[in-house]
Nucleic acid binder design. Structure first.
Lengths: 250, 250
DNA sequence: GTCTATATTCAGATAGAC
DNA sequence: GTCTATCTGAATATAGAC
């Protein structure tokens, strides 16, 4: 309301640095000393501006998630208005939900890939206050998208849809968080993304686009996969890639 | 080689407790004091038996991953012997890789869901020594499975297969790690798994089976999804769940 | 092998001068 | 708003008696 001088600078600088360091070393692995040193502010500044380390982490996320949530809800609003009461197509819903996020990765002013990676990693942090924070932040959006998916896939049991939504969130989080996990686990054979650490702006933006192109078909394929035939998981489903029996219903 | 008394008890008890606590609170979030207290051993016991906290975490994983790696390689050996030189079916490969893991979740003597959750969570920990540890532990197995997938899907670019393998790992890790992340993000609507914390043996075993039944079709659907049509991600692909053009090639 | 006691380092937070 | 100095607690690790 009435901050006099470069208060804004300090706050934002702390948030920027914390965003990056939390992403690189995790919440517990990042001390306030390291943050304040890198941000070139005094050690006491974090407690003055945010109150505590936990509150700092929440502030880092609130700065980005407010916009993301609005964007996601609005994307759904637009689609539903266009459809005029008819159910949406699954691909539209996924594009609205995941596409909106992945486009953040191309937008440096919204945190870019740094924030996306941080988000992916933090979603799996065990600390209690983090869980409840995300539960509150995400509740409304997840609920809207869940309902949209229920309507889009009326023949698929709701429990199954929720599971698959969860799988999709996992695939995305992990893919985003793990540009280096990927290097570790798969042995760095992804050609063009080989540029070690993020080449900041250009490389990150390209990575976000490529990731989106790869991820969306995968998610859609998983979401629309035929349901489990209850018992034996390995014998019945058709195999050859050309013509699988794609029947999500019962 | 020559441990006299209940040395074995102590070591195993520490490993059991560490496995559970690391799963619940993460590596950084779990102190050696808490571990040794819960295991009813002396604070110095961990350093005596394992050398350091880092080494303890590695020991926790080594105890399980040796068996898992052998099992996974053997499953592939058996399949390839049966196929007699022909490429395997994607579903067989996924069943060998993910099914083997998920069956660990039903086997309390192999760590059960506790270990599976720990594994899923730890894969996303940022600490450097953890990354390199997993890189070494996983290298051989991942490589074998990657090659099997290349052969099984000769028309899909290798880079695409590696990405999708990564997506699958993510969906699985997240799904396994996040029985409670799931509760947080999706609002606990999964009916039968609502039993808060793991009801230990019976509930966990059932959860592992249910998870497998849900996850495998999703992964297979994602792996075999049609490739991105390069440019616009939202307009071209067929939608209605009944008959999508399943063509992974080009 | 086990234990007590302790060394050492580092964390988050705050009091109070400016 | 910013800074120095410091409090308080907790972490890993080890020395040395038993």
């Amino acid at each position: 309301m009435s901050e006099p001088k470069n208060n804004h600078d300090t706050r934002e600088r702390i948030l920027d640095v914390a965003e990056r360091l939390f992403m690189e070393h995790g919440y517990e692995g990042t001390s306030m000393r390291v943050i304040t040193t890198a941000a070139e502010v005094n050690l006491a500044a974090v407690n003055y501006h945010f109150g505590s380390k936990e509150a700092l982490l929440c502030a880092v996320f609130r700065r980005r998630l407010g916009w993301l949530n609005r964007e996601r809800l609005q994307a759904l609003d637009v689609l539903e208005a266009q459809a005029g009461g008819a159910p949406l197509k699954p691909s539209q819903i996924l594009e609205a939900f995941f596409g909106t996020l992945l486009r953040m990765g191309e937008d440096e002013s919204r945190g870019g890939m740094t924030f996306l990676r941080l988000l992916g990693r933090t979603l799996t942090e065990p600390a209690e206050f983090i869980r409840t924070f995300f539960a509150n932040e995400y509740a409304e959006v997840i609920d809207r998208y869940k309902l949209a998916l229920f309507r889009a896939l009326p023949d698929v049991p709701k429990a199954e849809i929720v599971w698959r939504l969860h799988f999709m969130l996992g695939a995305m989080s992990y893919a985003i968080a793990g540009t280096d996990v990927l290097r570790v686990v798969t042995g760095c054979e992804l050609g063009d993304l080989a540029g070690e650490q993020n080449a900041d702006a250009a490389g990150d933006s390209a990575l976000a686009r490529r990731l989106s192109q790869r991820l969306m078909p995968f998610l859609l394929g998983g979401l629309r996969a035929p349901l489990s035939n209850l018992a034996a998981p390995s014998a019945a489903a058709p195999e050859s890639p050309g013509e699988g029996g794609q029947k999500p219903e019962v």
